[in-house]
Design a protein around this nucleic acid. Structure first.
Lengths: 341, 341
DNA sequence: TTGAAAGCGCTAACAA
DNA sequence: TTGTTAGCGCTTTCAA
């Protein structure tokens, strides 16, 4: 075992060790151009036994190509983005492109910073959550000259392309279903509006649908940080202590909804008979609960897949006309916590 | 609004636009060296209005420095690694270093591929989960000449440095506590052993502790994919159908354990009186369950924090002597599902 | 305080 | 099939 080298190995080292020119070594290592099987083997052997790892920094600078796709999302911990990532990876695995993830914590300033940082590595494309970005972020994206796909949401104008669902419509649909089922005293529980634009849009669509039915939100309960089961329990307890007349609760996501459901089951509420519950996202977690929370599929892996396909297409054929907005249609799943209308 | 440029802007463009030499522009943009306030402002203004984003590829090649730390973990979706990442980020945020994540799906071949890919970008350090790696992976890590911290586990010999807990000991401790509480017919439910070395070590430590008390595992139930609540329900149902005499179940992680707990509560089991339950990890999710599952803290954010600190230290002062192995001590939390001994 | 020259490690384009 | 040459866009080093 030789001691670790001071400087990493270069192509030149492999060239000298194998007695083949740098250029030919480079060709072998990239499987490009015609190289005789004999030299090929010689080079491969030398490279492997030396433990040579190519320097992509230099390669990228020389070739002006970086096979990275920047994926910029608000958070990793809420069970929604892992599925988006799976969809993206599935597609990119069939290509030389690789996803690199950046997290914004729902903060526009952080998004701007992460975006700047990632663009400075000159990726081949950007997949970014949401349609709301700071002016500087939009400017950077436009100026980058690479394909940009905004995901999750379609309520707005994309910079380049967008794949997602209409959260406003999702909220409206849920509102209509809840009214149709006969609920009238409706409460909303969710993230403090503002940071999470998609939750806000669902809320707006929801209240709009209720308004059309002549119903006003009876009470609301907002929280700030985290999205744990525990929060759902607390908030549900509080809103029901304050407004015991409520006959339906709409949660901004499944996790808080699940927390509420667990708490209400312990308290012996009659669900969905005297009170209905609904969440959003259709996360896997719900499958394991004693009762299935009503929810709406947010098409996460499909969104990831299509976004990656758009990037791939545009990287392989830069003149492909932009696909514009792709709006997917989420379905309501009534589960066991909402009467059907 | 001008149309997007064919080629991204370069330092030279900013230089020409501001009438300052490339070199001085570079200095301004990096806050290095003495530059008069007048030129500074001129450059900053020009750069901003043009929307210039520096090319890190070129910068890295020239400076031979890449402020990236490769973080290589098996999975993102099981609630354990997000917390590790938080610990890492917390520390790196105070420095110019940035984490970049790679996922291995618990597959050694994929680990090797991801590692190769990341090392080819010449990061400043590597944080990698586990102590078990293929020979090729170990060789690459050794040859890289950069600080390497293996995390989560301390049962084995690190390549460079390691921060984690002893999973063998964690299993042993839980085994001892369970015996002390008087349970004797004990079942184990977990991932199929092999891929997940840390779960395997816990299992080994657990059986070892039971053996010392003259007790043998009465039954086991293994699963392969995913780690959902639903799996926990199914497996628990199956093992109890097969071995109704069991008086304690040890799960390889909290999520399957939580699934089991929910199912058993529905079935009306007397917990922890006639049957005890325990998991592993102490994930936040447990806080929201009707009863708190007994578990053991896996020190995730502390592991992330310390790993990042080691990297940081070694990057700033390359001659720092290696810290070797850092073993943290997890604590048992008896929750509501295990009698105390 | 500023600038000029050289080169980081690789690949595109061309020549042999 | 193989080799040579000239950069990629920046930073280091040294000189002014």
């Amino acid at each position: 075992m030789s001691k670790p080298p001071i400087r990493p190995l270069t192509l030149r080292d492999v060239s000298e060790a194998s007695g083949v020119s740098e250029m030919t070594v480079s060709r072998v290592l990239r499987n490009r151009g015609d190289v005789s099987e004999a030299t090929r083997q010689k080079v491969l052997l030398a490279a492997k036994r030396m433990g040579y790892v190519p320097n992509k920094i230099a390669g990228a600078l020389a070739s002006q190509r970086v096979n990275l796709v920047a994926v910029i999302i608000p958070s990793m911990s809420n069970m929604v983005f892992p599925e988006v990532m799976t969809g993206i990876s599935r597609v990119l695995e069939t290509s030389p492109l690789q996803p690199v993830v950046g997290i914004t914590d729902y903060q526009p300033e952080k998004e701007e910073k992460v975006l700047y940082e990632m663009l400075s590595w000159r990726p081949s494309g950007v997949i970014i959550a949401g349609l709301e970005h700071s002016d500087a972020s939009r400017a950077m994206l436009k100026a980058s000259g690479i394909p940009v796909v905004e995901i999750m949401d379609t309520d707005g104008t994309p910079i380049d392309a967008a794949v997602g669902i209409s959260h406003r419509r999702a909220g409206r649909e849920m509102g209509k279903s809840i009214l149709r089922a006969g609920y009238r005293k409706i409460g909303f529980l969710g993230t403090r509006l503002g940071a999470d634009h998609r939750a806000r849009k669902r809320f707006e669509g929801f209240t709009e649908a209720l308004a059309k039915g002549g119903v006003e939100i009876a009470d609301t309960e907002f929280y700030t940080r985290g999205s744990a089961l525990g929060k759902g329990r607390e908030m549900t307890q509080q809103i029901l202590a304050r407004s015991p007349e409520l006959d339906c609760l709409y949660y901004s996501n499944d996790i808080v909804g699940a927390g509420g459901l667990l708490w209400m089951m312990e308290q012996g509420y009659d669900i969905p008979g005297s009170i209905g519950l609904a969440g959003f996202n259709d996360v896997e977690l719900l499958q394991g609960l004693p009762r299935k929370l009503a929810t709406m599929d947010s098409c996460r892996s499909e969104i990831g897949r299509q976004a990656a396909e758009i990037i791939l297409e545009r990287v392989e054929a830069p003149d492909t006309p932009p696909r514009g907005k792709v709006e997917l249609t989420p379905r309501i799943n009534f589960g066991d916590t909402l009467r059907m209308g």
